[in-house]
Simulated scan of single mutants.
Amino acid sequence: MKYTQLGRTGLKVSRLVLGTMNFGPLTDEADSHVIMNAALDAGINFFDTANVYGRGRNKGRTESIIGNWFAKGGERRDKVVLATKVYGDMGADEAAWPNHDKLSALNIRRAVDASLKRLQTDYIDVYQFHHIDRDTPFEEIWQAVDVLVQQGKILYVGSSNFPGYKIAQANEIATRRGTLGLVSEQCLYNLYERRAEMEVIPAAQEYGVGIIPWSPLHGGALGGVLRKQVEGGRRDEGRAAGGMSGPDVRAKIQAYEDLLDKHGLEPGEAALAWLLTRPGVTGPIVGPRTAEQLESAVRATELELNEELLAGLDEIFPGPGPSPEAFAW
């Protein structure tokens, strides 16, 4: 497994991030533990979760599964760079309840303590804001973060789903306060969806923020969905079902699969390998439901995509180009 530094930190993380959102809803606890063991064996040390993972009335279940895995010992916690998130409503009745969601200082304090309890650890390596909070000023957010860092409950802070201007705003205010600021940003980014290249990724690079793409296979659309349909696999591949509704989209995906067949590559592995070639990317989040899916993702880290293939991928899925030219009429 290849390693890199997370943004402008000294933290060494694997080029793949183990996403855990399927743990609980789709993968039971025993199989989730098997996947985490396999991830460590493969050299993956960066695990990502969120306090709301588990869905519905089971929010927090995913963190609890990870915590139970840590409790098995074997230096599991020491080997993992652990990232979780705060923002979503954690009210038990699933109805919005004041101060049980978003990024107020009060909710951040409550959410950290609850996550630590479920995760059965005394610190979180990367604590991430799951969404922007339009109601809470960054001065308040950073003040709450400073306290948690001083208490040793969190080490670094990241963001998720932030636009470029919010990355800039957050880090400018952090700089004025004399604190480190954001070190990572999780954003939707893959071959099919490249709008992050316009402002999010340039902003992240400018501020030394590592990019951690989520949905690297665009909900399954880049994972060989058409081939699987022909072979009699599942017809709906996650978000791929909705994303494949138009004939132009289907034509693009067919051209993509045909190109990779020509080069003898698996579509899902090539899509991950492409992300690893992109400037500013720390590592894509993979969310395996099975150990076999994890093995496929690991193989992607060893792929070398030649210039002819990269040019072909750009032709099928052209990026928007840099800003402000990308906004030109």
Rank of each mutant, 00 (worst) to 15 (best):
E231L: 15
S215T: 08
A241D: 05
L222S: 13
L217K: 01
M244W: 04
R289A: 09
G219W: 03
Q293M: 05
Q229V: 07
G220W: 03
G223S: 11
G223Q: 01
G233K: 05
L275G: 12
H218E: 15
G243N: 05
V249N: 12
P279C: 08
L275R: 11
Q254E: 14
G243V: 00
L260M: 09
V249D: 13
D248S: 11
A241N: 03
D258F: 04
G238Y: 04
D248I: 05
A251P: 00
Q229S: 06
E231K: 11
G264A: 09
V230D: 03
V298N: 05
G219L: 03
A240E: 06
L294K: 06
G233H: 06
A270S: 08
E231F: 02
E257Q: 11
V286E: 09
L260T: 10
L217P: 00
I285C: 14
V249E: 15
G268Q: 14
A255M: 09
G224L: 00
R234S: 14
E231I: 01
T277G: 08
K252M: 13
R235F: 08
L276E: 11
E237L: 06
R289P: 00
T290A: 06
A273Y: 09
A240L: 06
L265D: 11
G242F: 10
L272D: 08
V225F: 00
R289Q: 12
E295V: 03
P288R: 12
V281S: 08
R289W: 02
H218N: 15
L275C: 12
A255P: 03
R227S: 13
A273N: 10
G223R: 01
A291N: 06
T282A: 15
A240M: 05
L272F: 11
E292T: 11
A271P: 01
A270T: 08
P267V: 10
H263K: 14
E257D: 08
G219K: 03
D258L: 14
M244P: 05
P267Y: 10
R235A: 07
G246S: 15
S215A: 13
G242K: 07
I253G: 03
R250A: 12
I253M: 09
L294F: 02
G233Q: 05
V298S: 04
S215K: 00
G238A: 03
R250Q: 15
